[in-house]
Design a protein around this nucleic acid. Structure first.
Lengths: 258, 258
DNA sequence: CGTTGTGTTGATATTAATCAACAAGTGTGG
DNA sequence: CCACACTTGTTGATTAATATCAACACAACG
């Protein structure tokens, strides 16, 4: 969970590592993640302290590593791969509330139980924190709490945007919004440029997209087919979509276009 | 923005007031709010410091005091009344993302502009903080940051629940969920008992309910009429609903019942 | 006493869901 | 290597839930 600039990990782990304030941190000393948004906020860390708090874990594809209603014992930071987060109704209806890519925090909630389930879409790596110990850690590192507040605020804004989509947008507008949002994802476009990606990778199935957008798989499929016919997108391969007319899609996503 | 147990405000305001840690705080020294969730988290406060940071404001009914897209200069805490929070599409479609009652924080976002608009449903009182000064205040009082993180986490859970509602619940289930959620509100049921209120007060119109639940006013009206015919509720007066069969409504809200 | 905003109810339209069939890809085991 | 099951995705026909359009009742208000 600690990031320092050193490329190689020190063989016998030092008992305490202090990263100088202001110095950029890139390589997690705890797990092998390259970039670790928790730690970027923490100028000085006690390695042993963190080592007892976090463990790096591999999660196999399809594995549900958080279950709604279970006691919320852990707190996760995604370091590789992507998960879907969802809530279920008793009869099986499902709402995917988001996809958790690299850097995402999971399980922030104050509640004693998880409010949603999380299932790996592909092989993942996560850093798992004990929530009990996390509280003590946050008390020592207010900067980390500040970072978490930022993250939570941003997620809240995204959640409100999704409510607008689910409550008021048409099927076509929802798909367009989804495509544009994916294209704007830092993992899909080059990190340096703020532009949209030309080709986006979708690690989720049509069923996942449908459950994320409050539609059925048939409606998702038909909308994509129609976008293709209209020259807005191309589908070069399964799990890939090429954006051909991002302006039109952006307009549609905003609730204006055709 | 400071709460101490003293009933009367000290006439010449002391230059610095320190509230002992662990001591309950009830009366805001800054504005005249009775309970102030910001301050409950802060064991020791500098009154002058806060006084330059927050001002108490009255907001008349119908006034939009936050506008989506405007520079986010302030941060609010509702101390009386209720507001609707919403986002608009260019053609006027509206999604109400929540209702902000007493104690609610508004404008937490990291972004430079507001992500939603807020309009008073009734005469309100809010405490307005300068966001620029808030940052410095939070740095001095990590406990306040912690409190905000809790609040944001809870709101995130509520937002996910609302996504489930908007994406996957039927019109009847949405209305049932709304009624049960309002009945569970501390302001509607007695604070001491965790039970549901028998009669709930709705400060919002049918149009607001519709825009909150992703429905039309007609569907809201028809659903309520049918609930009444089925003996689940009664409508003693405009803006009031009496819950007659909370068990059935709760089941329906969960996506199980009839 | 008209005007306006709000809420209800009815008739009809439309979007997206449901039901159904099938194609393509993947993995399994004989 | 090839049937076989199984998953995923596409497309068509039909249905159903909810939106839309329309009329009207009622209360608040100037």
């Amino acid at each position: 969970m600690i990031l320092v600039r050193t490329a190689a990990r020190p063989a016998p782990r030092p008992r305490a590592v202090v990263v100088e304030p202001g110095r950029a941190v890139e390589q997690c000393l705890h797990c092998d993640a390259r970039k670790h948004s928790v730690c970027n906020a923490i100028p000085a860390l006690d390695l042993d302290r963190l080592a007892t708090t976090a463990v790096s874990m591999n999660v196999e594809s399809g594995r549900a590593f958080i279950r709604e209603g279970d006691p919320a014992e852990h707190f996760f930071n995604v370091t590789a791969g992507c998960a879907k987060l969802f809530k279920l109704l008793p009869d099986g209806r499902r709402q995917i509330t988001g996809f958790a890519g690299v850097g995402t925090f999971l399980g922030l909630a104050v509640s004693a139980t998880y409010a949603f389930s999380a299932e790996a879409l592909e092989p993942m790596k996560v850093c798992r924190f004990s929530r009990a110990k996390l509280r003590a850690l946050l008390d020592d590192f207010p900067a980390m709490e500040q970072r978490l507040l930022e993250v939570a605020s941003n997620e809240l804004v995204a959640a409100q945007e999704q409510m607008l989509l689910l409550g008021r947008k048409t099927a076509r507008e929802r798909i367009a919004s989804f495509l544009i949002a994916r294209a704007a994802l830092p993992s899909n476009c080059l990190a340096s440029e703020p532009e949209l990606a030309q080709v986006i990778t979708l690690p989720m199935t049509r069923a996942d997209i449908a459950d994320y957008l409050g539609l059925t798989i048939e409606t998702v499929s038909r909308s994509l087919t129609r976008f293709k016919a209209e020259g807005l997108i191309e589908i070069p391969a399964a799990g890939e979509i090429a954006i051909r007319d991002s302006a039109a899609l952006t307009r549609m996503a905003a609730g204006a276009g055709p």
